[in-house]
Design a protein around this nucleic acid. Structure first.
Lengths: 204, 204, 204, 204
DNA sequence: AATGAATGAGTATTCATTCAT
DNA sequence: AATGAATGAATACTCATTCAT
């Protein structure tokens, strides 16, 4: 049977090999296609979607999926890892050389807008979304970026000095989830963020 | 006879609890136990939990669950209906006779605190949580209560006049989901709400 | 569990009490309604139809059905018993005082036409239809009537003298089943019977 | 990939047996074993028999049955398709090169004798047996063969010229069903067919 | 490495039957 | 006698995972 232990996916670097591993060209290509397909499928149907469907959408056989990701949980974890990494990169780019006073809010808005489209971001931010405990390294990376942006904004006087990182992460997470599940339109999202941002800004 | 529809012998009565279909005493008792068990089970393990476990926890046979809720989806829907109704009731109680300036914020905090414990509240507020589309009536009822509280608070000058109900519902929903998935502790919840509330208050 | 022995319905007079039993008026009425409903339901959906549906259509509770017919098999058996009895009666009526040369063929045609409408006649004639072994008494009664009609027709020279009763029963059964399953229209039925009848008539 | 349609890797080839979907050798072997087992099981216990028993008798796991036939109904349909195809083949063989005057009757008798053993033939001929609507192509194929045999026999003067194909199919069907359900012995079958055949022959 | 067939535990749902009201 | 709720075995079907090709 299938070991049902709760934490058996945690061994970082086991589920889905590191992208750097020397893989045959087609193997690397397949890995990417599977990941992309999985992101789509799980986004559409939720984590309950079948691995077979992922394989089908990726155009590979089911066995290939399991060769790359020995467990469904591993697949899920890999998606998040990738997603989060992508976001961190984009965030870093936003942070570099921008006006600190706006960079923070821009990134915040960017994340929320993103969440509205990428359903899977759910678990991404949540401590325990989708039954997967995203590995702490990446989670930490995101917090780092946001932390930097936050400090910059605070130094620039654009965010209240008494606000701490955990609060920001909490509100960011919450807003992303709301945007995702609630199907907010652009206008509602803008007006909602306005309130949140006002809460973060210093009292005049 | 054996009406096969979901026998929603609902405690529709605002304050009472007996208006529903005339069911035999034991039947009503079982229905309640099943609902309670289901709330627990789904809260713990998510919507993927098995109906059989619900039956076990409720101390009835599997057939009894299906007699009351012909479909798993029906069971899920019933949970939400009940949950939402309960919240609406409690909200109404809060609203009655309290200082409008604080009632709104009290209710908001109350909901979020609640969500932190009851995992199922997720779908409750989301447009489409758990694959169940909660019926519009109850959804509307919640909006009504919140709407009244909001107006009261705005008239009392405790909330910015330009804030609209959809924004409030959006932030409320988001914060509930964040609290639920994020496992915030009491302190983090308090500090997070502080920011949100500040965003809602009039600029000085 | 449910005794799965093949023959446990045979104890004549057990499944469904004899019509003569002193029953409360409403009890007798219920018995009749159930029987009628069952005939309809099983005719429409086959023997796989649920007992609950029979109860529903009869307007009684499920318990009442089982009080009258302790087993589904008993219910099925009762239907056939009744059906067969009815047919025997009608056959006898046909036979009485009619021209023996035509009575036989008339009855044959009558049965087949009947079968085309009453789906349940299936098992009625078959040795083992619907998993129920119709009790021999009634089965015998039918054979008796047909036998008499056959003899009359043979004496009148309308049927070949070398034809025996078992052959007639076999063809009658087969034709009824064909008519039932095949959904023959009136014309096809007539033309088909024409062939069968010609096979039964003396060679000129 | 995992085409979820009924993979009717049929031995469609008239005489051969390999034209179907290219399946791995073991897959084709399993498909055949399942089909054989199903024919047996359903023949013995009727269509109510469990799929699990089919799997057991075929010596495969339950999942394998459903991989080949996604639905019980598909399995039933496949059996009939195969059965009918087999009969059509054998009928064609009988028809080829035989004396038309006897070929027709030989085939008729052959079918009925067959039906007496293979319970599943029921639905095979009936318009709607077992809840499965056999596909029209095969149904048509049978009619074609019988039609040819009929014409040959009529030209040879062995069958009345006014008999039409629909009548013949009707009687053939009926007799098969009678033989199947009625458990006729060899003698009764012979004598019954004698009558039917006489009805089909020209009046002297 | 890839394929895709096989496995088999798991799950929702149905239904004959029993039994408390 | 009637009611209808409860029972629980049975059953079709799904899906993660393994393994022979």
């Amino acid at each position: 049977m299938t070991a049902r232990g709760p934490d058996d996916a945690g061994q970082a670097g086991r589920g889905g090999q590191e992208t750097g591993r020397r893989l045959r060209a087609d193997a690397r290509r397949n890995r990417a296609r599977i990941l992309a397909a999985a992101e789509e499928v799980f986004a559409e149907k939720g984590e309950g979607a079948s691995t077979e469907e992922v394989a089908a959408r990726a155009g590979v056989a089911i066995g290939t999926v399991f060769r790359h990701f020995p467990t469904k949980r591993d697949l899920l974890a890999a998606i998040m890892k990738e997603l989060r990494a992508r976001l961190v990169d984009e965030a870093a780019a936003l942070a570099a050389g921008a006006d600190p006073a706006t960079a923070f809010f821009d990134f915040f808005a960017f994340m929320v807008e993103r969440a509205a489209r990428v359903r899977t971001v759910l678990g991404l931010l949540a401590a325990e979304g989708m039954g997967v405990r995203t590995d702490e390294q990446i989670r930490g990376a995101l917090e780092n970026v946001v932390g930097e942006l936050l400090q910059g904004a605070q130094r620039a006087g654009a965010v209240r000095p008494d606000v701490r990182l955990d609060q920001v992460m909490a509100i960011l997470t919450a807003t992303c989830q709301g945007a995702m599940h609630g199907a907010w339109d652009d206008d509602l999202r803008r007006r909602t963020l306005m309130i949140v941002f006002d809460g973060l800004r210093p009292r005049p």
